[in-house]
Design a protein around this nucleic acid. Structure first.
Length: 292
RNA sequence: GCGUCGGUGGCAGAGUGGUCAAUUGCAAUUGACUGUAAAUCAAUCGCCCUUCGGGCUACGUAGGUUCGAAUCCUACCCGGCGCA
């Protein structure tokens, strides 16, 4: 990053769950006159508050936050939608002469902005997905190989979710377009990103996850999930949302005990944190703070 | 105390003479990631040797039967249940 660069600057705060990103974002925003753009695939949904660890009005301390509560949990929000909305928010913030601070733990969402991922212009086709999902991975792979051998070469042949999407794209466009380069023309090249990564040592992170879980239980996470279900979110959908929503939903359906719910949320949160790191690790532009 | 069922790898739980270092699930570790990403998926997972492959130690403990035992027999220890 050069001080002489005249590109517009954007700060990115990322890291594992429970690492303390939101608080740092607010602090920085107040200091430099910034606004926060959340990059969290669950906090985009209205009503997912306690379980998703959404920042409260009070915690915002007057700093405007974007990309929270922008979608109904009944319908699936996508990375492509995120990208559009977040880019629009960033432009508005910059136009006001303020600094956007992207803050969140969803790696794909962050990359969609900072790397300018170009998602193929093929919206999800639920009818087709329902059909394809009935098939086995082998069958899907053969199908993809037939219509787009090039994509088939690199895809994970056992991952049905990816296979279905690839077929969905290939059927419409004839093939899955190659990944865009980071060169000019890429919207991301207009900005200069300063990426700050937050991480904690393993035992401390585990401790925080545990503590946070108990706090959420006290705040009424279980009734939040119960209410979401009563407001017509199916159990299936709630389980699909993962982590606290998945296991609290299972508990409310009496599929698991309260004790199992708590331990599941803890171990799954830890595994999630590891997957997050796995993703962030590849990005050499991140400057890490804390941890080892 | 008698009877009975059982004690298997971090946990759960298969296996009941050879093809078993031992099915499977979970956890763990490493990794993938082009509109579900808190999602989805893969590999590894007793110890040692360099992979192929080989060696060693293992299925409560100690003996025994057998060419060969996690699997059969005996004793002992531990746990559940029943009767006392």
């Amino acid at each position: 990053m050069s001080v002489y660069s005249n590109k517009q600057k954007i700060i990115v705060i990322l890291g594992q769950t429970a690492a303390g990103k939101s608080a740092l974002a607010v602090k920085m925003a107040r200091k430099i006159g910034g606004e926060v753009v959340s990059a969290d695939s669950r906090q985009v949904y209205k009503g997912l508050d306690i379980g998703s660890g959404k920042i409260t009005k009070k915690e915002m301390r007057g700093v405007p936050h974007h990309l929270l509560d922008v979608a109904s949990p009944k319908r699936r929000f996508t990375a492509a939608q995120y990208q559009k909305l977040a880019m629009a928010a960033i432009k508005k913030i910059l136009a006001r002469g303020k600094t956007p601070i992207i803050c969140g733990g969803t790696g794909l969402y962050i990359d969609s902005i900072t790397k300018g991922i170009v998602f193929p212009e093929v919206p999800p086709n639920q009818a087709m997905r329902n059909l394809l999902e009935k098939k086995g991975a082998d069958e899907l792979f053969k199908l993809l190989r037939k219509i787009d051998p090039k994509r088939a070469k690199n895809i994970d042949a056992k991952n049905k979710v990816r296979l279905v999407r690839a077929i969905e794209i290939a059927k419409k466009l004839g093939r899955v377009p190659p990944l865009p380069s980071r060169a000019e023309g890429n919207p991301a090249s207009k900005y200069e990103f300063m990426k700050i990564g937050l991480k904690l040592p393993e035992n401390e992170l585990k401790r925080k996850i545990k503590k946070r879980l108990l706090a959420r239980m006290k705040e009424g996470m279980v009734s939040e999930v119960r209410k979401l279900h009563e407001d017509s979110l199916s159990w299936r959908r709630l389980e699909e949302l993962g982590l606290e929503y998945r296991y609290v939903a299972q508990y409310l359906q009496k599929k698991i005990s309260r004790e199992e719910m708590l331990s599941k949320i803890k171990t799954e949160s830890w595994r999630y944190a590891k997957r997050q790191m796995q993703w962030f690790k590849r990005d050499k532009e991140i400057k890490w703070k804390g941890g080892r």
